[in-house]
């Protein structure tokens, strides 16, 4: 059981932290205003020079393999609601790590999305 809990925590925390790091890297690069393919290619290359991008990619890879592992040892019906918590974790991370202003309205939306995603995935499995 301790192993499952650890893997669940790793899926949610590493996945969310990875996306937050990618978000931070992109905010550091600045707003993209030109969508020419050459410019987009240059943006991708410049993002790869940022440590936040590499942290993010490493954490997202960790989360992906942890998810594969947890799916192999735990019941899908248990895995799904836990991974849907990522929406709440992401919003908390956005508020404190990226200093985003999360209004009550956005919180209500995030809570509804979390419940909805859980029901969709339960209904499919």
């Amino acid at each position: 059981m301790a192993r499952e809990v650890f893997l669940f925590a790793l899926v949610v925390c590493a996945g969310t932290a990875g996306e937050l790091c990618v978000s931070r890297a992109m905010k550091t690069l600045g707003e993209v205003t030109n969508f020419h393919p050459a410019v987009l290619f240059s943006v991708v290359l410049r993002s790869l020079r940022l440590k936040w991008m590499w942290f993010g990619l490493a954490l997202m890879t960790t989360a992906f393999f942890s998810l594969l592992w947890v799916l192999a040892i735990a019941n899908v019906s248990l895995v799904v609601p836990v991974t849907a918590i990522s929406y709440v974790a992401g919003t908390v991370g956005g508020k404190f790590f990226l200093r985003e202003r999360v209004t009550r309205k956005r919180w209500v939306g995030v809570a509804l999305v979390t419940v909805g995603v859980t029901l969709v995935l339960i209904g499919r499995s």
């Binding site: 309205k105 956005r106 209500v108 939306g109 999305v113 909805g116 969709v120 339960i122 209904g123």
Partner: peptide, 27 residues
């Protein structure tokens, strides 16, 4: 599509409606 899944889809749409009612950029 099971009724549970449809219910989930409706709740997601409602949640997205709330989220997109806030400004996309606050920083």
């Amino acid at each position: 599509i099971s009724p549970t899944r449809w219910l989930g889809v409706i709740i997601i749409c409602l949640g997205v409606f709330f989220v997109t009612g806030t400004p996309p950029r606050t920083t």
